[in-house]
Design a protein around this nucleic acid. Sequence first.
DNA 1: ACGTGCCAATAGCACGTGCTAGAGGGTCGT
DNA 2: ACGACCCTCTAGCACGTGCTATTGGCACGT
Lengths: 322, 322
Amino acid sequence: MHDIAEHLGVSRQLVSLVLRDAEGPSEESRRRVRAAAQELGYHPDQSARLLRGRRSHRLGVLFSMKEPFEADLVERLLTAAAARGYSLALGPHGPSRPQAGALAELLGQRIEALLVLSGDSGLDTIDGLPDTVPLVQLGGPAAGDGHDDVRADDAAGFALLVDHLVDLGHRRIAHVSGGSGPNAAARRTAYAQQMRSRGLSPDTVEAAYTEEAGYRAAVQLLDREASPTAIMAANDRCAVGVMAALASRGVAVPGRVSVTGFDDSSVASWPFMDLTTVDVDPSALAEAALEAAVYRAGGGTGAPAAERVVPRLVVRSSTGPA
Amino acid sequence: MHDIAEHLGVSRQLVSLVLRDAEGPSEESRRRVRAAAQELGYHPDQSARLLRGRRSHRLGVLFSMKEPFEADLVERLLTAAAARGYSLALGPHGPSRPQAGALAELLGQRIEALLVLSGDSGLDTIDGLPDTVPLVQLGGPAAGDGHDDVRADDAAGFALLVDHLVDLGHRRIAHVSGGSGPNAAARRTAYAQQMRSRGLSPDTVEAAYTEEAGYRAAVQLLDREASPTAIMAANDRCAVGVMAALASRGVAVPGRVSVTGFDDSSVASWPFMDLTTVDVDPSALAEAALEAAVYRAGGGTGAPAAERVVPRLVVRSSTGPA
DNA sequence: ACGTGCCAATAGCACGTGCTAGAGGGTCGT
DNA sequence: ACGACCCTCTAGCACGTGCTATTGGCACGT
């Protein structure tokens, strides 16, 4: 900035005014300063900007790069934040990068609120976070207490899927559960409840949120005497395994068995999968979470929000009449 | 920092010395300062640190969150950078976040070098980047010129795969190509060359780096009179489609047709895929790219490096005797 | 000629930290 | 008892920017 000012023979302050679009400078000055900035390849130093400003308008995001769904959410968060004039400090954690390390880095970045993402991968309890930064939990296991909490309404989603299958005439509908994974218990319960309310008895096989677990669970189901005519997987990844197992046994989908997923991830739309699933609309999740974070960043002190985004049924060709 | 000093009745400078592990302060002081910092929930302000330091020891990474392989690379880069005392500024771009926007944000963060990732998804030509920041390209389409360039040795990888199949007795080996995708031409050429050197004639079907394209290409191959006994997909995603097509036609793998992938992504290790592929070892890629970036950051002015990481053949159960 | 008002541009401090230079108070040797 | 030394701590400036307060210059009215 100093260089630009010297180059033009004006003061540094004038340059500052122009570059942050403040009122004052004449059109002529604006033109010249902008041209010089372009010419000299100037980019404002975010550190200095952040340091000077009273507020940072910056939110931290703690997430895992491994999970495609979280990566997707982060992208939505980026646009949602930009639309409100906020920027995001990304804090990816992974096997080689402990959560605590990523957290410490975020806390050094003047964040006004912290968004914690946790998909189906599971996340150890969040600890070591200071009470100075408000926390918004997004889609993870139930937070301790007192924090904003945004997630999909899994119960509503499973009710939609059960109804869909029952309406198609299915009566032996099995559920391949996420086992001890986050939200798995809620999904299992929602499934059982909706089955009973339709006069059917639930049939759950414990597995996990992985392709391999889905594969094994499906094999197990096929080996029974009265194998089900429909299989509801705990999520899409799990459904991929189920589909693979059926294909390897030569079982027609949806001819003999219908299959459903949960998430509407990209795999669900592969033409040879074409999975009936529920769409949790990551944009809506991101929007709701960001709204909560912005509210806290602005000093909001209302009661913790507990937003439940209602998913949408997406019918594709993996389900059909019993 | 000021608060801690006041809390203990010492000077701010002493606190500074302790917290950055400089020599000088006594053990007693260290203990007390650290305890106070913990108690007050202090985290050093990175902005101020960055502003003060002459060097930032910070590297920018431009990538896409959509691509799992890039996400994986970023994670390796994070650990590699940490090991060398560098930090990374992440610049994810996506549909709603133009590359230029992410780039501008990075340039405002005092980066000393810029790593540009581009997997199989393709990336428009990089422009608008100032000549003040050295650039290292990682795995993408050939950079214009004069930039460091790190990527997998696709030719060596395909040679390994062709040799593997030929040694198993296959003679009709088809290649489902990545079409106009980045590096697809190089892989196609490497395949053709190695086939000829083994006395066989190449047989390429144009497709793309997606599951759907792989599926369609495989269907096309199966409909021929003399269908191949082995199919080499352009990458793992493509191989997933090929496998699905074979399964839906009841073609045994590897009984009647062998299948190979390229990348050793997570799908390749799914038990019902168990794909023979080549492992590009993202750690080695990340390490090499980071080394180049650090060299440039340190002011290195040598000739542009052109590192080719030699991949490793991973034999699984999707290939067998002809 | 002199004040009044306005527009354009400038002066100077503050943000939180790292680093160089220096200050204070002990201990030791003579 | 006095200076030389070391060990520990402190004073103060600099980094690049935003913002408040102030200055300079011009046109206008009296």
